[in-house]
Amino acid sequence: MGQQAAPVRTARLGKAVGSGPGAVSGAVLLLAGGAEVSEQRPFPFSTGLVRALGRRLARTGRTEGLAVHPVHYRYRGWNGTEAHLASDATWAADEAVRLYGDVPVCLVGLHMGGRAALRAGGHEAVNSVVALAPWLPEEDVARPVEPVKQLVGRRVLIAHGTNDERSDPELSFRLAARAKKVNRDVCRFEVHSDGHGLHQYRDEVVALTEDFVLGALFGHPVSRPVEDALAAPPPIGLRMPLASGFGRSLRK
């Protein structure tokens, strides 16, 4: 008997976080981390920060018609030129359009998911990107730098812990600086003394993301720090410190 072909893996859009809105007028797609190279099945979608973001966004955005979905990848790894995670993010944006029609989409990614969000940001439905502690490859003459032209016309937020020993924060600064040259709507916050998981200031990171996403998708006024970071020339707006306690005075 001949060997049976292995089933083809497909990406999947997870169930909407929370009870979900009635009529949908915007969508957030949550992109968890992954590995640089791996064809194993993806990690369970259990990252604390991503789950906290999903719950917060679903709760505060419900009255606006915000649908929040996790994206389940085909593979754990980015896998070189295959860029599986970015391809899955692009597929997920297509799926959001199929489900909800012509609504704005925000890609919110953590670690390798942050790289996927940035790479897939050129999808026509995407109007904004959030990359938290994005894993980015080292830049050298043998390796092409990460593209940024796909981010033109999108509002982009990057946040990175200054003590991240797994995803070099200087690489996200360099990418942000290149992106800022072609798109003024780019800002980057530095989470001082925090590490790769952004655990120490998780509440502040969640509040920053909420503030940015609701502004980008629904036109809400953003907080003064975000407004200043978007308006400031580099490097000021790309090294904006995330203040301890950020978000306590914002809407709950």
Results as ranks from 00 to 15, higher is better:
2 G>I: 10
5 A>R: 07
23 A>S: 14
24 V>R: 07
25 S>V: 02
26 G>Y: 02
29 L>F: 10
29 L>V: 09
31 L>S: 03
37 V>C: 00
37 V>D: 09
38 S>H: 01
39 E>V: 11
42 P>Q: 07
50 V>D: 00
52 A>E: 11
55 R>W: 02
57 L>T: 00
57 L>K: 03
58 A>F: 04
59 R>C: 01
60 T>R: 15
65 G>V: 15
65 G>K: 14
66 L>W: 08
66 L>G: 07
68 V>R: 14
71 V>Y: 11
71 V>H: 11
73 Y>W: 05
74 R>Q: 01
75 Y>N: 15
81 T>F: 13
81 T>V: 14
81 T>W: 11
83 A>S: 13
83 A>V: 03
84 H>S: 15
88 D>A: 06
99 L>A: 15
103 V>W: 05
103 V>N: 07
104 P>L: 12
109 G>A: 06
109 G>Y: 08
111 H>M: 08
114 G>L: 05
118 L>Y: 04
118 L>Q: 03
119 R>N: 05
123 H>A: 08
123 H>Y: 04
126 V>A: 03
127 N>K: 15
131 A>I: 12
138 E>M: 09
141 V>P: 04
147 P>Q: 06
149 K>S: 07
150 Q>S: 06
150 Q>L: 02
151 L>Q: 01
153 G>S: 04
157 L>W: 10
157 L>H: 12
158 I>Y: 02
160 H>K: 02
163 N>F: 07
166 R>S: 10
168 D>I: 12
169 P>E: 03
170 E>S: 08
170 E>N: 09
173 F>T: 12
175 L>P: 15
178 R>P: 11
179 A>P: 13
179 A>Y: 08
181 K>H: 07
182 V>D: 12
183 N>I: 00
183 N>V: 00
184 R>Q: 06
188 R>E: 11
189 F>C: 08
190 E>H: 04
190 E>S: 06
193 S>M: 02
198 L>G: 04
200 Q>K: 14
200 Q>M: 12
200 Q>A: 13
201 Y>P: 14
202 R>W: 03
204 E>C: 05
204 E>A: 06
204 E>Q: 13
205 V>G: 12
211 D>C: 04
213 V>R: 03
218 F>S: 01
222 V>C: 09
226 V>F: 05
226 V>M: 10
226 V>R: 09
228 D>H: 10
228 D>S: 09
229 A>L: 08
229 A>D: 07
232 A>K: 07
234 P>H: 01
239 R>N: 11
242 L>T: 10
248 R>Y: 14
250 L>E: 15
250 L>G: 15
251 R>P: 15
